[in-house]
Each structure stands twice: as C-alpha cells, then as structure tokens.
C-alpha cells in the first residue's frame, strides 16, 4: 500500500510530487528516462517503473557509473533524470558530477533524494549536508532546493525544459504548502514569502516554512521580518540578497545543510564583499550526532524560536 502523501497536519512528502511530475513529463516526451542505483522505491518511482519499464535504467549499487551513464544517455539524445539518495549521488560520484555533467555541460538532471538529515538516525554517512558547498562552485550546474510539493513539481518541469545540468535537492521530510498569491516558479530568483523591514530571514527547501514561522515569533515582539524562499542556491539571487542588506538591518540564513559553504556561505560571500550587515547562519556546524531528523532540527536550532532569537542577536549587533 502506498504511503499517504499528506499527513493529518497537512504536511506532504515532496517525493510524491516529484514522481507525478516526472511521469507526466515522460508521457509527453519520450526522450525522458530515469536512472537509478537500486533506488526505485526510495525515489517513489515504482509507478514510473511499471508504466515505462524500458525507460528506467537501474545500474545497481554503483553511483559513479550511474552518473557517467547519464552523461552518455544525454550524448545519445535522452533527457536523463538521475534519482538517488543525495549523499551518494553527490558524494560518491562527485567527480563524475563535476567532470561528466557540469564541466561537460550535459543535459542531465540530478535528483538528490532524502537530502539534508532526512536519514537522521543513520548517521553522518547518510546525511547530505555538504552538497550545497560541493556543487555551488560548479558554475553551470543549477542547484535548486524546492520548499513544498508545488515548487517541487514546478522545478521538475522547469528542469526538463532547461537545456543543461540541474541538481534538484529533494527531501522526504514532511513540509506544509507555502501560501503565495499568484505563484510563479522563477529559477534563480528568491520568492518573497513575506515583506518586512527590520531583518531578512532566508530559507531554502525544508527550512523556508520554518523561517516563515520565525517571522511570526518576531512579529509578536514588534520586529518586522522579510522572508525569502531561496530555492535556487546556484546561481544565487544576488539582487534579492543585496536588497535585503540594503533595506533591512540584518540577515539570517536557515538551511538543512552545513553552514560552511552552503546558503549561509553564499550569502556571507556576497554581502561581505558588497554591503556588510550582521549575518547569522542557522544550520549544521559539520558532522552531527545521530538522532531523528526532527530531533536534529531542534537540537541544532532549526526552529522558529531559535531563528527568531538569532535574528534579535543580529539586530542587536546592527545597532553598534
């Protein structure tokens, strides 16, 4: 029996949206194929495998050949979507991602499943919190971390139409739907979730809704927070970040990733060189201990209350 796609609390597993979008694309375009490393179930591709048995390439437990093969499939005119646990897709096959996909500029879509600390209890080997830092310097590799089912589906559809390499960082962590009026997916652009004038909170993927909750905590204390959903990590929306530095007095980044070199690192590079304002980077400090994903979020401060506290600390520094 299929797992429910939405919990009683209205939370969704974005893998359902990914698999549905891929199947729709595949029905319309026979160049689209899926490549997996024995990761059919964990990618929610069972229905795809049934509908398109000849268009699912399972290379076995072999990430290097999985990524190399996808470059070859693109050479042969296919549009491969490579779906595997993000820790192995990016870590085990990092040189293939660099040389065969990004540097060679092949039209391949890399889908990192269960990213961040979704496999919390399994330990740091199975966490994927380094991927932003590893992939962000690869200039033509677009890195996107969708925040909810709608954005996941839109990102998958956009990636299929984009002629070039894309890394989509998906999660199995249940997330709520973001409510945005007249919503349009704009790759490379920050999505304004809430306007504000004192501090800017920047989330991506699973943390955008937490940043939004933190803004409510701040509002109760009379602090006006702007909230940005920064789905695209590479290239970063420089304009939105610099506007935040110009128009608000401090910035807090929130990511389900290492704060070294990821979203926080990217924002730090940009504002330090252009318009320094106090910055707090909420995320993981490096390898983290074992625990459930929820427990790790609480333990390392990926919570509304901690984000709000860090925002107040940054605003305090801004006064000096």
């Amino acid at each position: 029996m299929a797992a429910p796609t939405q919990t009683a609390a209205g939370l969704s597993d974005c893998r359902t949206a990914w698999a549905k979008a891929l199947a729709e694309l595949a029905r319309a375009d026979d160049r689209i194929v899926a490549v997996v490393n024995d990761s059919v179930g964990s990618s929610k591709l069972d229905a795809f495998a049934k509908e398109f048995p000849d268009r699912l390439i399972n290379v076995g437990i072999a990430e290097q050949v999985m990524v190399g093969v996808s470059a070859g499939l693109a050479n042969g005119g296919k549009v491969p979507f490579v779906s595997a646990a993000s820790c192995f897709l990016t870590g085990r096959a990092l040189e293939q991602v660099k040389a065969d996909i990004a540097y060679a500029n092949f039209n391949v879509k890399l889908i990192g499943q269960s990213s961040g600390v979704a496999y919390g209890e399994l330990g740091a080997t199975h966490h994927s919190i380094e991927d932003f830092a590893w992939l962000r310097p690869m200039t033509n590799l677009i890195v996107i971390a969708p925040a909810d089912p709608w954005e996941t589906a839109e990102a998958v559809k956009w990636a299929a139409g984009h002629d070039g390499p894309v890394y989509l960082r998906l999660s199995r962590m249940p997330v709520p739907d973001l409510v945005v009026e007249d919503r349009v997916f704009r790759p490379g652009k920050a999505e304004l979730l809430q306007q504000g004038s004192d501090v800017t909170l920047i989330g991506a993927g699973t943390t955008s809704h937490i940043a939004l909750a933190a803004a409510q905590v701040l509002a109760a204390q009379g602090v006006s927070a702007r909230v940005l959903n920064m789905a695209t990590i590479n290239p970063l929306d420089d304009v939105a970040v610099l506007a935040a530095a110009e128009e608000t007095r401090a910035i807090v980044t929130v990511e389900e990733a290492s704060v070294r070199g990821g979203l926080g690192g990217a924002v730090a590079e940009l504002i330090t060189a252009n318009r320094p304002v106090p910055l707090e980077r909420v995320g993981f400090p490096g390898f983290v201990v074992t625990g459930s994903a929820d427990w790790l979020f609480a333990e390392y401060g990926l919570t509304a209350d901690n984000i709000a506290a860090r925002a107040l600390a940054a605003l305090e520094r801004a006064k000096r």
């Binding site: 194929v33 000849d54 268009r55 390439i57 290097q64 050949v65 990524v67 190399g68 093969v69 996808s70 470059a71 070859g72 499939l73 693109a74 050479n75 042969g76 005119g77 296919k78 491969p80 040189e95 293939q96 040389a99 065969d100």
Partner: peptide, 17 residues
C-alpha cells in the same frame, strides 16, 4: 575511469532508440 561509463550510457541510448 570516466570515459567508459559515458560510452556505456551512449550505447544504452542507442539500444533504447
């Protein structure tokens, strides 16, 4: 060790098509 896996992918694409 990169060219062989890419060649494999090309051959798979040719077979599929």
């Amino acid at each position: 060790g990169h060219g062989f896996p890419v060649a494999l992918g090309i051959a798979i694409a040719g077979q599929m098509s």
